[in-house]
């Protein structure tokens, strides 16, 4: 026994060193992004992103540009916030309703419907890009926030997650409420929904992050400059004109910071949200 614990102790020391090394590598991009965000964009254009750090040449000018001089960045930020809020609220509301329906009731076609939920989860949206684009034109939803949000607002992933969660809740609560003459919708909103707080927390994070970082679909739907979201806006900065290059790195840093802060404050919900489905099966 003694040799075994000694073994795993030395083992844990060497893996401590290995992990320290790997973590430094994995965190280095954040550090370099931050450092580069204080350098003139012209330098990044001519030298690439470099290891050399010249503290004297660092300036807050880039941040002044994105916050005060060039109003594009704050517009993108605002658009991303609106779309993220809209998407998160809609998808949590609708997906929890559907998840509840699938978890609590027995009805004709239930198994087929659940199978379809899983099937939709399995098809990457990229395949639907063109027909959805045409649909958006027909529905007059091009270049609108609703067009970005609506096709994916009822998320099969969230439905699956909520269903699993609700199945785990005690059914007696629902029975008791029915005996008291409580309507089915009231049971959901007044009794079950409050119990789903942890599930809502995890899904808020997953859906908000998915939406905040979404790129391909918003790129298809959004057309006018004043409607662009952060990721698309950042991509549009890859032109050598004006002070675009000054805005890239501070823009990237400022788009990660809110998520990073939320993550550090709320790690468990993040990790549960982002890895849901894989665990609860």
């Amino acid at each position: 026994m003694r040799t075994k614990t000694k073994d795993s102790k030395t083992g844990s020391y060497s893996s401590f060193i290995v992990f320290t090394f790997i973590c430094i590598i994995f965190l280095a991009p954040f550090f370099f992004m931050l450092v580069t965000s204080f350098k003139p964009g012209q330098e990044m254009l001519s030298k690439g992103l470099t290891l050399k750090i010249n503290f004297d040449a660092m300036t807050l000018n880039n941040y002044k540009i994105i916050f005060f001089e060039d109003n594009r960045y704050l517009t993108w930020y605002k658009n991303s916030l609106i779309i993220t809020a809209l998407y998160t609220v809609l998808s949590l509301f609708f997906s929890s309703l559907v998840g509840y329906g699938l978890a609590v009731y027995n009805f004709k076609g239930k198994n087929l419907l659940f199978f379809i939920v899983l099937l939709v989860m399995m098809v990457p949206l990229e395949i639907l890009l063109l027909p959805l684009y045409r649909l958006m034109i027909t529905l007059n939803l091009m270049d609108t926030y609703l067009g970005v949000v609506l096709p994916f607002a009822v998320s099969p992933f969230a439905i699956f997650f909520f269903r699993q969660y609700i199945i785990g809740l005690p059914k007696e609560l629902i029975e008791a409420a029915r005996v008291d003459g409580c309507g089915e919708f009231r049971i959901f909103f007044k009794i079950i929904a409050p119990l789903m707080k942890p599930a809502f927390g995890a899904m808020t994070i997953l859906q908000a992050m998915t939406s905040w970082n979404a790129f391909v679909w918003p790129l298809v739907v959004l057309r006018s400059a004043k409607k662009l979201t952060l990721p698309i806006g950042l991509m549009s900065l890859l032109t050598p004109y004006g002070n675009s290059y000054d805005m890239i790195m501070p823009g990237a840093v400022m788009s990660v910071i809110p998520i990073a802060i939320l993550f550090l404050l709320n790690q468990r919900a993040f990790i549960e949200g982002l890895t849901a489905g894989g665990i609860k099966q």
């Binding site: 965190l27 970082n213 990237a252």
Partner: peptide
């Protein structure tokens, strides 16, 4: 620390 990169969008990571 190893999870942190998952928080970035493809575009932000791609820029770096």
């Amino acid at each position: 620390s190893l999870f942190m990169p998952a928080l970035t969008s493809v575009i932000v990571a791609g820029m770096f």
